Amino acid sequence: MHYQGDVFRPPSEAKSILLQVTTGCSHNKCSFCGMYKNSRFSIKDDDIIMEDIEYASRHFQRQKRLFICDGDALILPQKRLLHILNAIREQLPWVERVGIYANTKSIRLKSDEDLQKLRDAGLKIAYMGLESGDDVTLEHICKGSNAQRMVEMGQRLRSAGMLLSVTVLLGIAGKKRSHVHAVETGRVLSAIDPEYVGALSLMLSQGTDLYSSYEKGLFELLEPMEMLEELAVMITHTDLSGGYFHANHASNYLPIKARLPEEKEKTLQLIHSALQGKVGLKAEQYRSF
C-alpha cells in the first residue's frame, strides 16, 4: 500500500483496510489539531489508488471493513469517489462497510442525490468532527462551520441512509464556556441524532495555535473533575433515539459506553460517583490522544 506521511483513522476502524486516497486535510485550520500540520492536502493519482485496491484484494481478504483516508476524502469529486467505491465493490466483494471522514464543506458540495449514490455504492458510515455545539467556541477553534450547519449536514448524511459517528471534545471551550459548551453540544447532538457519539477529552498538542494560547495564559485547561462535570452536563442535554454515546477513548479519564436513552440515568450516576471519589479515574500517564 502506498502511504504518504502519517495516516489517521477513527478508533473503531482499527482493524479496517486503510485506503489512502488523499493526503492531509482540506481544511487544516483547527486550532487544537496538529494531525496534518506538516502534510499538504492533495488527491492521489487514480493509478496509485487502483493499485492499492488490487493489492488489498490479494492480501487483505479477512478484513470486512475499509476506511478511506485521509482527513476529508469526501471532498473528492463525485465521479472519482464513485469510481473508487465501485472498484472496491468489484475487487473486494467481502468488504461489508466502507467509511470516510466528512466535514460540512465536503458534505455541502454533494447533493442529496450524490450522497444517496455514495451510500448505494457502499459508503455506509461517515465520521464528522463536531467538537462543540457552541458557535463562540467553534469560531475560537477555527472550525470553519457553525452549529446550525453542523446540524443540517449531519441530518443530510442520516437522510442518505449513512451511519453517522460524531466526535465532540471535552474541555475544548476552556473553563469560562465549559457549561455553555456542554449544553449546546448536547442540543446539537440531539438535533442530529447520530448512531454514534464519541467524546474525547482535550489533550493539548505542541505546535498548535491552542497550545500557544495555553502557554500565553489565554486558554485554561480543565481539571479532570471539571472534564467529568462537563461530560455529565453534556449527557444530560443529549437525547438520542437509540444511539451510543462513547467516552471510552484513550484520552478519557472515565471510560463510558452508553446507549441513549436507555442507559442515560445509569451513566449519569456513574459519573456522579466518580465526582464523589467513589470510582477511580485513569491516571494521567495512561492517557493518550
Rank of each mutant, 00 (worst) to 15 (best):
V98P: 03
I53W: 10
D45C: 01
S12P: 02
P10K: 08
Y55C: 07
F32N: 09
I107K: 05
E51D: 14
F32K: 08
A73E: 05
I48A: 11
I17C: 05
G24K: 09
R108C: 03
S57Y: 03
F60S: 15
I68Q: 05
D70G: 02
G34I: 09
M50R: 13
A14C: 01
K37H: 07
K79I: 08
C33W: 06
I48N: 02
Q61L: 13
F60E: 15
P10Y: 09
N38R: 14
R58V: 03
L82I: 08
G34S: 06
H83A: 14
S31N: 10
V21T: 13
L19T: 05
C69F: 04
R58P: 00
V21N: 01
P11Y: 07
K105L: 13
F60M: 13
G99M: 04
H83D: 15
P93Q: 08
I100R: 04
L76T: 03
I49N: 04
I84N: 02
K44E: 10
S111C: 02
L109M: 13
I49L: 06
E90P: 00
V21Q: 02
I75G: 03
D47P: 00
S31I: 06
G34P: 04
F67P: 06
P10W: 11
R89N: 01
R40M: 10
I53R: 08
H83N: 14
V21W: 01
D46Y: 11
H83C: 12
L92M: 12
D46V: 09
R65M: 10
R108M: 12
D46I: 13
L19H: 08
E113D: 14
R65E: 15
I107C: 09
K37P: 00
F32E: 05
N28K: 12
Q61W: 06
A102I: 05
W94N: 03
T22N: 11
M35P: 03
E96S: 12
L18T: 12
T22E: 10
L66T: 11
K37A: 09
